[in-house]
Amino acid sequence: MATLQIDGVSKSYGDIKILKRVDIEIDPGDFLVLLGPSGCGKSTLLNLIAGLDEITDGEIRIAGERVNELSPKDRDIAMVFQSYALYPTMSVRENIEFGMRIRKVPDAERTEAVKRVAALLQIEPLLDRKPSQLSGGQRQRVAMGRALVRNPKLFLFDEPLSNLDAKLRVDMRTEIKKLHQRLGTTIVYVTHDQIEAMTMATKVAVMKDGYVQQLADPETIYDTPASVYVAKFVGSPAMNIIPATFRLTDQGTEVRLSRPDGSVISLRDVAISTEAARQYSGRDVLVGIRPETFHTAPAAEEGAFEVDVDVIEPTGPDTLAFFTLGGTEVIARLEPRSVQSGRSARLNVNMAKVVLFDRETEKRIQ
């Protein structure tokens, strides 16, 4: 286990800036997920940590040691690639122990290490097979075994599940999480899949255009996103972002959302600081409401309001209801069979879960 510190790291190729002053720090045993769309710089950052590319500016430290000038073999890291990168002519056993052979690890030690890792990953029956005789999930286990046998300071995973089908991805997510819990290793994991990030990480760095938009634990990322970008990128369906007007009144804070017929819905007691409430009173804002933050409400419930449901999508355990507020299509995740298409529905919102964003900067108002 090791700490990882990334201080002001930038990467450019000529005039093209890929990473722009990235700052990340994780503790021993953390599972950091670098999350973002293609082209955001997450794989470039992983390559810089691994030593596969040179840093333009900044510093990377592993276990407190600066590694900028160290070659990959001297950084004590192990990497699992998207493509598995297995040697096709070697058996599973030979693939796993290949790195140890190169380092001239004694035979008995190699045998014991392969046995330990094979048991951990439940691939003992596969040790004498060739990669061509394995399924995608089995190949990924072998690739992980080759990394685990090293017992390095840091594990790096570069979109390791993207080549697997949907069911295998779910299974392997669980396996990797179990592995992390058992071994307590420090992991940096690259993905564009927000489900992988939310289910496996202890910390998530959401990236866009070479910047880290937010670094926090998954619950914080989900409940209090730092920007509209993070709010929309994490969550399925994504957080509703609704144009509205904010007011500070004698009764407290109030957000006013317009219906299609021109009438107004008032949401009271938004949780923001007194200073921010004074600053934004009378201004247009963006309101962030997760779909599950809505619920159907009895007529007598304080703060409830009516909406006209355009269409519903029953999913089994719940129903997605679509309607319009603030000129924007809104999605609510509600109880099964609680609303109908083309009918009005009485809803309410858990105001403790509502967040506000600045209309211009799209940053969260605190």
Score class of each variant (00 low, 15 high):
S344I: 10
T44P: 05
L148V: 15
D193N: 13
P336S: 01
E97V: 13
L164A: 04
R101L: 05
R182E: 15
S236T: 02
T186L: 04
A277S: 11
K115F: 02
D310I: 14
S344M: 10
I49Y: 09
R61L: 11
F294P: 10
A352W: 08
E362K: 11
K363N: 13
S344K: 15
A352M: 12
L121A: 09
D23K: 01
E301H: 10
P160G: 02
K208G: 08
D74G: 04
A345D: 10
Q279S: 13
T44D: 13
G137T: 03
S258L: 13
F246W: 05
E59W: 01
D223L: 14
D209K: 06
I102S: 06
D269S: 14
A205Y: 06
H295Q: 14
T249K: 07
V309A: 00
A345F: 07
V149Q: 04
F246V: 11
L19C: 09
F233R: 03
E219N: 10
R169W: 02
F81D: 12
L154G: 01
I123Q: 10
A108H: 08
A352R: 12
V92Q: 06
S341V: 09
G288C: 02
K353A: 11
P298Y: 03
L154T: 06
T315R: 12
R116L: 05
T3R: 03
S12E: 14
I331A: 09
Q138K: 03
S162K: 03
S281A: 10
I187A: 09
L4V: 15
P260H: 02
Y211A: 14
G39L: 00
N163W: 03
A226C: 12
Q122E: 15
Y280S: 02
L127A: 15
T89H: 15
M207I: 07
I77K: 00
Q366D: 14
I26R: 02
L257D: 07
G8T: 13
L257N: 05
F246H: 04
R101A: 08
I265N: 00
V307A: 00
P243A: 03
R333W: 01
K178M: 12
R173L: 04
L356D: 04
T328K: 15
S83K: 10
R256N: 11
A271E: 13
K42Y: 09
I331T: 13
R256S: 09
F233E: 04
P125I: 12
T224P: 07
D128C: 08
V354C: 11
R66I: 15
E54L: 14
L334A: 10
G262E: 01
P131M: 06
M1T: 12
I60M: 03
D171S: 10
L257F: 01
A78I: 05
G8A: 14
K130G: 07
Q279H: 14
K130W: 04
K208V: 08
E313C: 11
D30E: 12
E112G: 01
F357E: 06
S10M: 00
F305Q: 12
A205I: 08
E25N: 10
L127I: 15
